[in-house]
């Protein structure tokens, strides 16, 4: 077996067309998961009655099971559930018309929410208690203090962790090809099977993933430098 170097470029051009899907599968779950994450982190920190147990269970389950399982369960289970509901209440939902990407996005969002909630929770805990007391002492409510004093510092400190999660989810989105969602890995698989050039196709896919990762790391580095400038001391 030989390696067809020029074909890597041909494959690259074909596979990169699927990049938008990969980016959607990465960014949308992380943004939606971020909102879930903040909510869950606050519920757990303030041990809100009842909700607290649900949040604990949610984080434990979604961090304790593989993401591939979430995708499978939601992809196969959700339509079943919807069909039953549709039948009973005569809603007329046709589950086979729902785009696959929606199931994948829901699964990834729920997983991202659980991981992000732990990052945000640790960020909030790392801000010293004195910041909260100072906010109270100038007459802020708990919400104002959280919003204006604690969260900005907690999130700024969490940027390296967010980058980690982003990179992780960029690569995790490749699982979506199992339910025939054509993202970068899926596209690579198709290019490979059609031309019987697996090595070249997956090298091309690898270059795309790596390139995006390097880009994200660079942006994260600059962002971190900018938003945590307050913490570095010295005289500007």
């Amino acid at each position: 077996m030989t390696i067809d170097i020029p074909f890597i470029w041909i494959a690259f051009k074909e596979i990169i067309k699927a990049l938008p899907i990969t980016l959607i599968l990465t960014i949308v779950p992380l943004l939606a998961g971020f909102l879930i994450g903040i909510g869950v982190a606050l519920v757990r920190i303030y041990k809100m009655k009842f909700l607290y147990r649900i949040a604990n269970g949610y984080v434990s389950f979604f961090r304790g099971t593989p993401i591939i399982m979430h995708i499978m369960v939601i992809y196969f289970g959700f339509p079943l559930l919807l069909d039953q509901l549709s039948l009973r209440f005569d809603l007329g939902i046709q589950t086979n018309k729902i785009p696959i990407i929606l199931f994948v996005l829901i699964a990834l969002t729920l997983a991202a929410g659980s991981y992000l909630s732990e990052i945000i929770r640790s960020g909030i805990i790392s801000v010293s208690n004195g910041q909260m007391e100072a906010a109270y002492s100038v007459g802020m409510t708990k919400f104002q203090a959280m919003n204006r004093i604690i969260l900005p510092q907690a999130l700024a400190q969490s940027i390296p962790n967010f980058t980690n999660i982003f990179v992780g989810f960029l690569h995790t989105s490749s699982i979506a090809f199992l339910v025939s969602q054509k993202e970068v890995t899926g596209a690579a698989n198709i290019v490979a099977s059609v031309n019987l050039k697996f090595l070249e196709a997956f090298i091309a896919a690898g270059i795309i993933y790596w390139g995006i990762t390097i880009l994200v790391e660079g942006i994260s580095f600059l962002l971190e430098k900018k938003v945590t400038a307050y913490n570095r001391g010295g005289v500007s």
């Binding site: 010293s128 004195g130 910041q131 906010a135 004093i149 510092q153 700024a156 913490n231």
Partner: peptide
């Protein structure tokens, strides 16, 4: 310990 808002 002063407790100034560190990010402001």
């Amino acid at each position: 310990h002063y407790n100034l808002f560190a990010h402001k």
